[in-house]
Design a binder for these strands. Structure first.
Lengths: 229, 229
DNA sequence: TCCCGCATAATTGTATACAATTATACGAGA
DNA sequence: TCTCGTATAATTGTATACAATTATGCGGGA
């Protein structure tokens, strides 16, 4: 997990290596590359019209992110997210989102607070209309606002990382109306606790929010196509 | 992070990139390269008698480990840890080490348990002799055993990351006799809780262990030469 | 048929050449 | 003297060539 440095994350996209990195990452998260699939340097290079050099460098980064595994002199293989991994991540997130909510209570800016309120307002509107796509987008954004509002680059980066990592599962989860509405209600309560300056409550609610999301995933069998763990 | 992992860690050291990676890493942690110092590809390559290619790949890995920062088209700079970063990491670690201890209680293997007991035995021996170097090494190892024993690749990865990240501070901390002894005592209690199968207690103790370590750092001003946050 | 060994191909590891970008130095003009 | 612009050097980014390693296929022998 790379720490901090927002600047780089942007600039990176304009180098070939950065583009290769982001593309492979997306392709893995979107399921284009299957688990255990071997990624060849030349093949990917040809696909993107670049040489092996930037591809190799991207591989090294992807390995440290845990998305692929490089066996020396052999190749790069897509690592799978197991059912257990998803569970672990939700447990970890439960703790960290709680901490994040607590810190956000202390450090969130006026603008961020306003965006959060607006986010919930909009979510409730789209919920009443059944706009699942927008709701999913707003749900993601709610968490990002909180990450940014906690005033900790380290925690923000860690949470964004995990958030990304379980994106495939989340997309499915939020497509169901009932969970999405429940999620909205939980967001509102978290927001209100942050606004009221009640750090303990905010932490507890954010904590519970993650556990609820995970329970929903398990109950509905959204992980059925993941690896056994 | 599957079955190939161990092989790679070993083989890695016999590739040029692996050697470069480990050497730079050591040099940064040992303070040979100062914060904000620029690392040049050719210079390091010449020092080690290799070309830029393996050096560049090592840089990409070091960046994700958070030890250096690469500014596109400019260079690689040794990153500084801010005082706030260290604090944030210890708060995050407090939560995650707690979770790790709880999970270790449920999943630690017989061999790992034995190594943990041996670790504490040895630590106490070296403490009585005043061998600070060995004590620091054993302290690090204690945590790694717990990380490995929690049976979660995700959590293990995250904790090893943070562990490594604050290593520079830790080396100073553990060089003081008093904290080191206190740390030993806390390790023993954690180990006993794990062995007794008391997950709640193990979590609580591991939690407290991190907070104590952090308090010690703050009280003794070990972060005075770090960046302002 | 099965298994071994060797030649060949495919793939990764490293070095080098060249392109693009950024830093530096120096002189002209005010 | 100071500032700006340009030429030059230094450094990183990418492509390509070659070396080392690993995979593949085929023939011979039991």
């Amino acid at each position: 997990m790379g720490h901090y440095d927002v600047k780089r994350e942007v600039t990176d996209k304009y180098s070939l290596r950065g583009r290769v990195f982001h593309k492979i990452r997306e392709d893995i998260l979107n399921g284009r590359y299957k688990v255990r699939e071997e990624l060849r340097e030349v093949t990917i290079g040809e696909e993107m019209g670049v040489s092996r050099t930037p591809v190799r460098e991207a591989f090294r980064q992807l390995e440290l992110e845990g998305l692929i595994q490089i066996v020396p002199n052999k190749g790069a293989y897509v690592t799978g997210i197991t059912v257990k991994d998803v569970g672990d991540i939700y447990m970890i997130r439960s703790l960290l989102e709680g901490l994040c909510a607590r810190w956000a209570t202390e450090h969130i800016s006026r603008e961020q607070m306003e965006e959060m309120e607006e986010n919930i307002f909009l979510s409730e509107f789209h919920a009443s209309k059944g706009h699942t796509e927008q709701m999913a987008e707003l749900d993601n954004r709610f968490h990002e606002i909180m990450y940014e509002g906690c005033n900790s680059k380290i925690l923000e980066h860690a949470l964004k990382d995990y958030h990304q990592y379980v994106l495939r599962v989340r997309r499915k989860t939020l497509s169901t109306q009932t969970r999405s509405s429940a999620s909205n209600a939980e967001h509102r309560k978290i927001m209100e606790a942050i606004k009221a300056g009640d750090g303990d409550l905010a932490e507890q609610l954010a904590n519970r929010h993650m556990l609820n999301a995970y329970e929903n995933i398990v109950e509905n069998g959204y992980m059925e196509h993941y690896e056994e763990g």
